[in-house]
Nucleic acid binder design. Structure first.
Lengths: 111, 111
DNA sequence: TTGCGTTATACCTGAACATGAATAACGGAT
DNA sequence: ATCCGTTATTCATGTTCAGGTATAACGCAA
């Protein structure tokens, strides 16, 4: 069986993508480190790209996904809200079900 | 429910993408018209892009998906093989099941 | 007031990618 | 031999996109 069913999946809000796999990974790193910069560094992602993801997520969400603080001890930081963690967990489950779907479909492909 | 689960899906061969929604639409048009050029015209796709899709499909398939003829009455043309039609139908079914999956998952999203 | 690390934003440049134009090759019909 | 519409391929160009740099704003600590 040389063929594989592959795909990508995401949750879309009224104005565009809300949550995808990349953003979920980023959210996890932010939750761990409390910092967008540090999360970006660990993922080998530019700060700018990370910030744009964060900004887009907040724009697509009624309730904030992360709360950022500028200035203060350590320069500031950002925390992932309760709603952010909830969305994160929901996407993880969705993604697992999607992975089941693709591998199940792969076994069905007869070419 | 403002959020929707969206995604894309495709069948991948050893060397890259074999069949996706765009290629399936193109295959259908080729089967109808017997011509890559005419199919491209009807889809508002450049001939080059259409030809590259066709070439890639044949490269990723053990048995040819389309057979092209250059020269002759009408300048030539291309036909979709039996295996091509089979692959086309299989992808259509896969895509329908994927659409069911995403709409089912959309109802599960609680944010 | 100065220093610090973070958030926030603008700008520039190089690379990847899509597009369109141009052209050759082909082979049956007239 | 010439014409025709198609397949097949190359080239130049334009446009989007990621990357890096640079810099301002912020607010607490010393």
């Amino acid at each position: 069986m040389a063929y594989k069913v592959k795909g990508t999946i995401w949750i879309e809000g009224p104005g565009g993508t809300f949550l995808g796999l990349g953003r979920v990974n980023l959210l996890q790193k932010i939750a761990e480190t409390g910092s967008i910069s540090e999360a970006a560094r660990r993922m080998n992602m530019s700060y700018r790209q990370a910030w744009e993801h964060v900004d887009a997520m907040n724009r697509e969400s009624k309730t904030p996904i992360v709360i950022t603080n500028t200035g203060g001890q350590g320069g500031g930081g950002t925390i992932v809200t309760k709603e952010g963690l909830k969305a994160l967990k929901q996407f993880e489950k969705l993604h697992k079900r999607f992975q089941s779907f693709t591998s199940r479909e792969t076994t069905k492909v007869k070419l």
